[in-house]
Amino acid sequence: MSNAATRHRPQRPDLLDPVEVSRLGGLEVVTQGIVEGFIAGLHRSPRKGFSVEFAEHRMYQPGDELRYVDWKLLGRTDRLHVKQFEEETNLRAMLVLDASRSMDWSGAPGARLSKLDYARRLAAALALVLLRQRDATGLICFDETVRSVTPPRARQTQWRDLLAVLGAIEAGQGTAAEPALRRVVDQLRRRGLVVFISDLLLDQELALTALRFLRHRGHQVLVLHVMDPAEVELEGAAEARFQDPESGAAVTLRPDVWSAAYRRTVLDTIARWRLACRRHGIAYERVTTDLPFGTALRQALVGSTHLA
């Protein structure tokens, strides 16, 4: 019995290895599985949702978090109602996905998803979580230009529309985040949530300017920095010529000699992004492509709860 228990592996897709999950089916099935598992997990989680400002009650529906059920109202009316919060009723969210060439890369093809494939699934899962809460959710995909704009809507078919876009998106060449982030302003007329999913291999100053602009317009901004573990820890021993698939720039060096210094540079860069974001009230979370989607989603939620 105990052996069977120790052999037991988690079946919740949100906790499985991202590559293992992606083998379970298409984007839709996988994302649904991830979100179901994730929401089931949230019932036991001490994490708070997206908002805290109470607005009104609505009828309980399966999938709603039990901690939002109004038990006093149940005692009076014998009906299950959940408390709704200001942002939940009004939230409009835009996911901004970087689909540049640098995102279409995996440090261990076959063993890890590419950053784009990971971000694609993470965006789909985030969209489903938001749409389940009846938050209007839209999507902007960009590379060197804005590739697609799906306006934020809360209707039932919205998730399928977003899936269609996410499934069809292919990696472009360059990265120009600023025009895409500025396009968000056209789509979010009221205060909303902007989730910027990118490997941040772009012009930091320009991107920060655009993110600051969004904050200035009153939007909550969350940056999800997607990295492959091989970008954090330089692997290999023999001398190699490392070439950027996006810009073509190349550097020749021995990874075993440079790995410690490289790691310091990466950690400094992450710290710089984190600091710059915090200074402007922007949430920053780093996710690596070996993280289970449930963990990444939780990071995204935690990040968003810390937003002003």
């Binding site: 890369w105 291999l201 190699a240 070439q243 860069t269």
Partner: peptide, 11 residues
């Protein structure tokens, strides 16, 4: 050998 590596800017 040539290795594709997007984070060349960090290098």
């Amino acid at each position: 050998p040539l290795v594709s590596f997007p984070a060349v800017r960090y290098l």
